[in-house]
Design a protein around this nucleic acid. Structure first.
Length: 253
DNA sequence: ATGTCCCAACTTTTGGGA
């Protein structure tokens, strides 16, 4: 079973790329972030034409998350207490699949930074109330680079968000509920950047961050066969600033 | 390089967000 995550930076701007990517990479489940549309404008029927059921949670201009599945989609859960469209969760086949768009935080002294830490804490608390019989994959744009290996220039990020100790501790506390960072587990030494700024030729220069994570229930880790960052999807005309990341998990049956 | 892309709107240019 292939589970992917992708911050598409507007599903409207990316629909042709999204459709061809689904055909090429054939994920069983795709977790989207930053769809930037209201529910009524989400292209559910176009995606259904490719064989994917979908569930979307969006209010319009900002944020927006979705789940696409060709292995079933039920028991949909939308949003956390902040009221923004940053989380959606559903049971897809044997897995609980959760798409997260963690708040950016803006700057260490900005109120949005404290809100980011609270949001991660609420996500942790939610995990403690989960149905332990259904293993979860919690994936998305976490807006946190877990370690300095996940940042192209740690010295340039001193005092910035995405790398601060409280953010990394909040992510670590979430993982301590029984989740493993699939990329880092499979690739202990490879940066695996998933986001590059549109500006200043950052992608060409490989000035990236690894902030798009697949957090896999610990019990599933022995079944993980491969984890891939699809850098090809960041190339060419009108790309998202994020690459998709997927994990292949071998499940019985 | 304040460098780009995407959105909305009192929409053809500006401002907010990332």
């Amino acid at each position: 079973m292939r589970i992917a995550t992708w911050n598409v930076n507007s599903v409207r701007a990316r629909i042709e790329r999204l459709e061809s990517w689904l055909v090429d990479r054939a994920p069983d489940v795709l977790l989207l972030q930053e769809t930037k549309v209201a529910d009524a404008a989400f292209p559910a029927s176009r995606l259904a034409g490719l064989g994917y059921e979908s569930a979307h949670h969006g209010h319009g201009q900002w944020n927006g998350v979705a789940i696409l599945s060709r292995v079933g989609l039920r028991d949909v859960e939308r949003g956390l207490s902040d009221g923004e469209a940053r989380m959606i969760s559903a049971t897809c086949g044997p897995l609980r699949c959760t798409s997260c768009y963690v708040p950016n935080g803006r700057a260490l002294d900005d109120p949005h930074y404290a809100a980011k830490l609270r949001w991660l804490e609420e996500l942790r608390v939610r995990r403690t109330a989960r149905d332990a019989a259904v293993p979860e994959i919690l994936a998305g744009d976490f807006n946190v680079a877990p370690s300095d290996l996940d940042c192209y220039d740690p010295a340039a990020f001193v005092g910035a968000t995405h790398v601060s100790a409280p953010e990394r501790e909040a992510l670590g506390a979430l993982e301590a509920t029984g989740l493993t960072d699939a990329w880092r587990h499979q690739h202990p030494d490879a940066p695996g950047f998933s986001w590059w700024d549109y500006r200043a030729g950052a992608f060409h220069l490989d000035r990236g961050l690894r902030i798009d994570l697949l957090l896999v229930e610990d019990a599933l880790v022995p079944r993980v066969r491969d984890v891939t960052v699809d850098r090809d999807a960041r190339r060419g005309p009108r790309p998202s600033d994020h690459a998709p990341v997927w994990v292949d998990v071998e499940l019985e049956g």
